[in-house]
Amino acid sequence: MLQVASPDPMVPQVMRIVTRRKDAPDVFTLRLEPEGDDLPAFAPGQFNMLTAFGVGESAISVSGDPAKGDGIVHTIRTVGAVSRALAGLRKGDTLGLRGPFGVGWPMEALEGKDVVLLAGGIGLAPLRPVIYRLLAERDRFGEVAILYGTRSPGDILYLRELESWRRRLDIDLLVTVDHAADDWHGHVGVVTTLLPRVAFDPENTVALLCGPEIMMRFGVQALGNAGVPDEAIYVSMERNMKCAIGLCGHCQFSPVFICKDGPVFRYDRIRYHLALKEL
């Protein structure tokens, strides 16, 4: 696991917003560069705690390319006070960053395997660093299928990138929406309906899922029906992260802490707990 850049993990680094892009009506992407300090290195699937000064902190997954080295990229959905405050920031403004934290996607486990990525809604953001790595080192993996479901055509993230990835002949990329007007000619239906439309060998596949928990539960079920074993399925969990270093207990998920032991977990290791309504 990578170490956090700051010697004290509770002290935020000051970061400046280099670019700000609107991805969807309530989603935006910030590219950040440090004020004087080194750029913190991160692994796909890790997250940072972003501070809107005077408002609070929020855990946000890194959505940029870990190999690019031109800043830290975060895609943020406005759902609460902190994300609303972050949404109000513009290019040149500053914010605080602690991290990166947590255990990311198992990139080594993907080598030589068919890879299925199942993303729902804003869940595409934490998987985007994986996609960059898969495409950059394409010959190290078997079949690659990216299946992305979201609410409506207007909610599709990273539209231009998706279009360019879809033109590649060495991956399958399918997008579906829950509902659409008649000017949309793509797929409509839940993301799991795309699984039979892509090629992968279930016995030699690793699947990575990120999205709303209900979607991931249905996704795990569909992958299981297709023959992918639970040990080859990884999910990215979300809970109320506060300290991000496993001290405060806010994100405790039965025997584990999402912030420290996750957010990415092998499904068979949390299967039982995921089914508990109280957690």
């Binding site: 809604g121 609410r151 999205g211 709303p212 209900i214 979607m215 249905f218």
Partner: peptide, 12 residues
């Protein structure tokens, strides 16, 4: 699938 759509899991 309809249940998932009705639940609007991608909604806020």
């Amino acid at each position: 699938a309809t249940r998932l759509q009705v639940l609007d899991v991608y909604g806020k």
